[in-house]
Amino acid sequence: MLTLPGWAFLNSYNIIVLALLLYFNEWNRQKTRQILSFRRLLHALLLTMLGDSLSRLPNDLPQFILSAHISNFMVYALDPICYCCIIAYIEACANLERPSFFTRFLWRPLAAVNLLLLLFNVLFHVPLFYYLKGSSYHRGILYTHRAVVMLSLCIAMEGFIFVHRKDFQKSYFLPLALFPLLSLFFGILQVIFLGASFQYMGLTLSCLLLFIYIQNRDINEDYLTGVLNRRGFYSTLDYAIKDRRSRILAVIMLDLDKFKLINDRFGHQAGDQALIDLSLILRACFRRTDTIGRFGGDEFCVLVPLKETTELEAILQRLREGVAQFNEARSRPYLLEISLGAAVYSPARWHDVDSFLGHVDALLYEEKERHHALP
């Protein structure tokens, strides 16, 4: 019977999970800084795990000696680079325009010093990080010191996330805060126990959490406003129509009047802020059971389950009042004006999502035309 050591099971699990995350992440064709930094993190971890696996092959066999030397060097060289990728991803989630002090003066110098010491270890056979004795590798004189520095920087990374907590979307903070904590916990296990890749197991688990709670959500989330994008809203509406369970469903479609004027007069940054302001008004006016989506440009849609069809007019009035209150506050140099189209879904009249949304869009267009006709 074939028996495999414990490290082989752990490494195989980590490699399979990382490869699947990389595969599914490729489905998102957007080229945002956040998505690209997550891909770089997955690539770095996958290469490190492959190197760690090759370095553990039997060194007493001649055909494995060279691969073990190369793989050990690769693991120790890539290790701090993985953490550089982590902090780059965190900075991308915080929308920091430039690399932070943390990156420029801690992680990048650490990676450079680590590489110099590693080259000294290999070229001059000084057992700083590791050395070969018999048929296996052993920890060098600086292994524990290196581990303490890495774990200390994980604590510093947690502090960095806490300091910048207001720069993240609310849904991002918890999974990001867990990242260095898991790395710290499994890193301590790595120092205590020999023969297993606990550290990389922690990093793999952290990446899995990031994919579930941030990356996968971003596939259906509008990057600017945080509401659902067109794809996410369409899927939600399609599912709701197919699974109505006797509920009354209404869709409200709205867009900003004179949005181009805001862009032309105050700049595109003000235009983006106007869209964010409108999304915040929608969040304040609707319930958690309602679904808000940005359908494209300055156009938003809201899916509203109703108990009675008569509720719809009161909901529309509440939305208009929310916009009026925003304008009365005069917190921006511009005013928001909206056009609305709304309808209650009827399976006898519309057989699919496209025909229903087309009808609501036509109602929106009619109101927009009336607004344009006003002096």
Score class of each variant (00 low, 15 high):
Gly202Met: 02
Thr225Tyr: 11
Ile188Arg: 01
Tyr239Leu: 08
Phe185Pro: 10
Tyr200Arg: 02
Ser206Ile: 08
Gly187Glu: 00
Leu182Asn: 05
Leu176Ser: 14
Met201Ile: 13
Phe186Pro: 09
Gly226Phe: 12
Ile188Asp: 00
Ser197Trp: 02
Leu181Gly: 06
Phe179Asn: 09
Pro180Lys: 05
Leu189Lys: 08
Gly232Ile: 12
Phe233Pro: 14
Pro175Gly: 10
Leu189Tyr: 07
Leu208Ser: 03
Phe179Gln: 14
Asn220Lys: 05
Leu224Asn: 07
Phe211Asn: 12
Thr236Gln: 07
Arg231Gln: 08
Phe186Asn: 02
Phe186Tyr: 13
Ile188Tyr: 06
Phe211Trp: 01
Ile188Pro: 06
Cys207Phe: 00
Ile188Ser: 03
Ser235Ile: 05
Tyr239Thr: 15
Leu194Pro: 06
Ala177Pro: 12
Tyr213His: 07
Ala177Thr: 10
Glu221Gln: 10
Cys207Arg: 01
Tyr223Pro: 15
Leu224His: 01
Leu181Asp: 09
Ile212Glu: 14
Leu237Pro: 14
Ile214His: 07
Leu205Asp: 04
Phe185Thr: 03
Leu189Met: 14
Leu237Phe: 04
Asn216Leu: 07
Arg231Asp: 02
Ser235Gln: 13
Phe179Glu: 15
Leu176Gln: 14
Arg230Ala: 13
Phe211Glu: 02
Leu189His: 03
Arg230Gln: 08
Asn216Lys: 11
Leu210Thr: 01
Met201Val: 15
Phe179Lys: 05
Phe193Val: 13
